[in-house]
Amino acid sequence: MAKLKSFFKDYLLFILFLCVIIVIWEWLVQSGKVPSFILPSPSSVIRSIVENRESLFQEHLLATVKEVAIGFFIAAAGGIALSILMYFSKALEKMIYPVVLISQTIPIIALSPVFVLWFGYTIWSKVAVTVLIAFFPIVVGMYDGLKNSDPEYDELLQSMGANKWQRFMKVKLPMALPSLFSGLKLAIVFSVVGATIGEWLGASVGLGYYSRRMSGNLNAEGVFAAVFLLSVLGMVLFFVVTLLQKWMLKWNEEKKR
């Protein structure tokens, strides 16, 4: 009960604002002030989702989720591993870190056709875009977390006779987790963006592909349906990562208040 109360306290204004926007939007379209092929009404978007639920959920949403999941996990595993290697080897850090930074200045959309060239229209061209876009926040989060941990803890463990690896496992790694999770939360949202871009450029299934096809058919409701589902997907995945963080970093909770 108390939880529900604090939830409303935190989000009441936001929910009200959202309702007002939706009502105005619906009214604008219903009254004919905005033509529905430019901006479909919220009710018609919902109707479109319900009507096409089978292909939307079982086919397109599933395909996108798969791309996001594979891409995110590859980016997370690779990003964490690379950060740890860079932490242990100065030479590797000097060599790789600038490359990671520069990789972010490449416009990903420009690079995507290259992936289509390499991986064709398989799932891997979409996964590649996702990995590329999700990799950066994970590496930065993990690496900064490792770098910025308090050296005094390190000294304390050293005075107890702990070797470098033990110090890393017992102190550095746990201390880097909050920063890693900041990166992961960004990365999961970016992953949805990456998969969508990948699908635009070449796919036969997925919500990105679906929205482009509907746009080609001048079906505004369909486009908005896909956009809506994509944003819900992003929010749900973000929420999942946040839950994981809360569960793993219980000790870090209270401090923020």
């Binding site: 005094e152 050293q158 005075s159 107890m160 006779g161 702990a162 033990q166």
Partner: peptide, 30 residues
């Protein structure tokens, strides 16, 4: 390192460990 017991000015208790786990920290390296 490891010859003597050293206590720095800050308590430096590991925030994710319980008190018991914290005070037994050194035993993990012995």
């Amino acid at each position: 390192p490891g010859s003597v017991g050293y206590m720095p000015q800050k308590d430096l208790l590991l925030p994710w460990r319980t008190v018991l786990e914290n005070i037994m920290l050194a035993s993990e390296f012995q």
